[in-house]
Design a protein around this nucleic acid. Sequence first.
DNA 1: GTGAAAGCGCTAACAT
DNA 2: ATGTTAGCGCTTTCAC
Lengths: 351, 351
Amino acid sequence: MTDREVAATGAGQARVTLQVIADRLDVSTATVSLALRDSPVVADATKLRVRTLARELGYIYNRSAASLRTARTNMIAVGFHDITNPYFAELLSAIEDAVTDAGKTILLGTYGESLERQDRVLGSLREYRPDGMILCAAGGTQADIVEHIVAARIPVVQLSREVAGVDLDFIGADDGHGTLRAFEHLHALGHRRIAMLGGADTTSTGRSRRAGYTAGLERFGLPFDPALMLEGLGHRETGLRGIMSLLDLPDPPTAALCFNDLIAFGAMLGLRHRGLEAGADFSIVGCDDVQEAALWYPALTTIHNRQDEMGRGAADMLIQRIGDPLAPVRRVLLEPRLVVRGSTAPPRSAV
Amino acid sequence: MTDREVAATGAGQARVTLQVIADRLDVSTATVSLALRDSPVVADATKLRVRTLARELGYIYNRSAASLRTARTNMIAVGFHDITNPYFAELLSAIEDAVTDAGKTILLGTYGESLERQDRVLGSLREYRPDGMILCAAGGTQADIVEHIVAARIPVVQLSREVAGVDLDFIGADDGHGTLRAFEHLHALGHRRIAMLGGADTTSTGRSRRAGYTAGLERFGLPFDPALMLEGLGHRETGLRGIMSLLDLPDPPTAALCFNDLIAFGAMLGLRHRGLEAGADFSIVGCDDVQEAALWYPALTTIHNRQDEMGRGAADMLIQRIGDPLAPVRRVLLEPRLVVRGSTAPPRSAV
DNA sequence: GTGAAAGCGCTAACAT
DNA sequence: ATGTTAGCGCTTTCAC
């Protein structure tokens, strides 16, 4: 007794394949295949018979088999570092919408900021032969890791962050510009000692946003004080601890630009621990504008990064790239928009 | 010229398969296959030669082909309604960890609360023949939709919510009990007019939490007032609008149990719009204890649902189920834990 | 310890 | 309009 027969016996019926339908209808598997895919070449009457029987028998299309033949899987791999950060959850959700609309499905891999795990996860994703991949690499990722994917001839679109030195489609925000806008906003309110909280040079977003910060200092002829530029991962803890150490400075700043909203939330919490309030006592600007940002108290002034457009855009770019692997590489930078809310105000001293 | 030759020419090298390696080494594909999988039956020297060449040629295992042969895909489908809700993002993240540890990969599908889209998405996931599926169905899902998956002989574990009338493994929180605990907490603080904000009878969590609320009323001999039990989806807007209408009541409540944390956040925002503060002026209890909850101001009193354990637990249950399809069905209820923070306090009148 | 051969379920040429 | 045939890349008997 073969495995197959066992399964059939056990469950009371044979696994239904094209062959089963073809046999019962006394047609060929080719006809059944074409009929199910609504090929114009098959007679309507035949299509009807095929489909009716397929439904009756509970036929389920086997994509592994089709993929083997067509070298198309209809899967889009998504490699993200963290989906617990609402910014990336929002991006993923937008991607999911676009991908589903295109009749494809997401194969998900995450790896935090661990390069070693990223390597394993991306290597594994590759084996499923997704039609393409949307990548948001861990900080510090080197070009050669991404080359492994490219070598497998899997089209890749980089999202939000881009790995240095690889020539691939990219969609993200114009982070440097966004941060500069935020800096100008704080300066216009009267702030002169402004900190930069979080981010690091291991990601392109970190580099760009930090560059936007130093560009702001330069534009207004303010001195660069290394004590005001605190490196850190995009977590709430970075903001919480960072704001504490800023406040403990002999000459503390009056405002902080945060690498992202989570850090800003952490910073606002830190202020409260010190009996201070964001806005009135210390200005905080976030970055991303996750849904939560508008609901904080005070609501967070932040840089809206259009995650919906960005996620959908990444999916669309990828689908185009799959269709035309030789088209010129594109870099799309979405213009961020500063959203002024309650967490920024003139400095106490200036009031 | 075949497609294959075109691809080979275009990219400068042929797609490397087991056959290519076998030919070059003058062994059979069987040997190569066994060698790469580290079979004890292959000579060490051969293994070394195979692996070295495989690496040199950039061989990538083709899981579609293997799946066709073995009827195993090593994919775990995850069907969620919403990954933008941090509660589900946290669950997904925990699942991802466990699944990756087991050498499997997530195939993701989401569908909001649309039954029609859920049907399409689940139908599509099924065609990929995942080894199993973790399901958190949309509200109002009928048993027959789930039967489609079961009929395809795909093991399913239900997570957090369970569809009425289906006999499948389930892991979730003991919601009724958790809500009752929260009710007791409010009662102990002196609240007597307590509202229930959000949830609906279309999901098991809605039913259980609302049942926990009415059980609380009964336990303390409080009257049921339909004006205090507001149905709604688990969004911030539900809390925002809900608290407004509660406050507009001729005899408003002094506290509200919320179906989840997002609703609680919305409710706290609504209080601020009315110049009131959670805790001091009106008590709010959430449910889930998402990371954000501890950071709000005031920090949210809520029911911790152990999303990490729950997510990992779902993955573990599923893997066991895949290993033994005939084992008895399990229902695991995790005991929720009330976390008291600043958003609850004695009612104004009682002070 | 290794090889030959069959076949998983599907699609695509080509033939009729 | 439908059938025949070959084969995608892998795993798995079964021989040797």
